[in-house]
């Protein structure tokens, strides 16, 4: 975001681990992705010191963007303190010595796995998603050659076949997460395995949304204020999960709730999946 300094981090690695050549390559892929919203740009994904499937795509995108003045937030399942979020945050603290935060409003870059923060994002913020499978058609069509052709020719009928099948069988669309969307009226895109609860937040979001799939070597993007529509039928419109319960900690009723088992006799309660949002609400209450 700002000029890179040549300051090497720990052990002589370059700032934010990746060498500048690689960062340039990734930035070019990001620019292309922003120019063609929802289109999956192939890129020369590098081996990272974290395993594939554990956020290597998101880490590479973040590493290519981050500058010394950035403030990074990392969440996994909505929480800052899950093990993998901690691990990735530590990675950037070590390799880039940047400031980190758990507060959504303070962050300039938020790397996420499986959630969009409950706090609305602001212009200038970047949300980096970790993506395990970038191809929304993959579950239906195994061949990459075929799916690329389908995207190129905008042949998306088969996506609706899947939704039709859900309704015929279950009376409703049964996809709960990684719910396919259409970006800017053109490309069908996998939003990564966020719950469909978060899908509406993607639409016309003022923040830049970037998606990195390391193992599959694809980057794609939703530029600020771009339309993101969840696929549905006119007579079976897209809808999000609702809970009858409220958060046991902050009392929120409008957030995505995680279910926590409290005993082995069916006892359970619900808490906000977004740990920062929940915390902020409690701080305000206490004041």
């Amino acid at each position: 975001m700002t000029d890179e300094s040549d300051t090497a981090g720990e052990n002589g690695y370059n700032f934010a681990y990746l060498d500048e050549q690689t960062k340039r390559m990734i930035r070019r892929a990001i620019l292309k992705a922003v120019a063609v919203p929802g289109y999956q740009v192939p890129f020369g994904s590098r081996e990272m010191p974290l395993p594939y499937g554990w956020g290597t795509g998101g880490i590479q995108v973040t590493a290519a963007l981050i500058g010394p003045d950035d403030v990074l937030k990392v969440i996994d399942q909505g929480a800052d303190d899950t093990t993998n979020a901690v691990s990735i945050r530590r990675f950037f603290e070590r390799t880039a010595a940047i400031a980190t935060t758990t507060r959504t409003v303070e962050a300039t870059i938020i790397q996420t796995r499986h959630r969009i923060p409950e706090t609305p994002l602001a212009p200038g913020q970047i949300l980096v998603y970790q993506v395990p499978q970038p191809e929304p058609l993959r579950r239906l069509v195994a061949s990459e050659v075929e799916t690329r052709t389908m995207h190129a020719l905008e042949e998306y009928g088969v996506m609706h076949v899947r939704l039709y099948e859900d309704i015929a069988r279950h009376g409703r669309i049964a996809t709960a997460y990684d719910y396919p969307v259409k970006v800017n009226g053109r490309y069908v895109m996998a939003p990564s395995p966020i719950p469909k609860f978060d899908n509406p937040k993607m639409d016309r979001n003022p923040a830049l949304q970037l998606f990195g799939a390391g193992r599959e070597k694809r980057i794609y993007a939703v530029p600020p204020h771009t339309s993101v529509k969840s696929l549905d039928f006119d007579d079976h419109p897209f809808e999000i999960e609702r809970w009858n319960e409220s958060c046991a900690l902050c009392g929120a009723t409008e957030t995505f709730l995680d279910e926590v088992l409290t005993d082995d006799a069916g006892g359970r309660l619900f808490v906000c999946s977004d740990s920062d949002y929940c915390h902020e609400r409690r701080v305000v209450e206490d004041d």
Binding site: Y52, G53, D76, T83, N84, R113, H114, I194, D258, S273
Partner: peptide
């Protein structure tokens, strides 16, 4: 092995 990572949210949705 990434299946070892938490999938609370996806599982909750399901």
């Amino acid at each position: 092995q990434h299946l070892k990572l938490p999938h609370y949210v996806d599982f909750q949705s399901e």
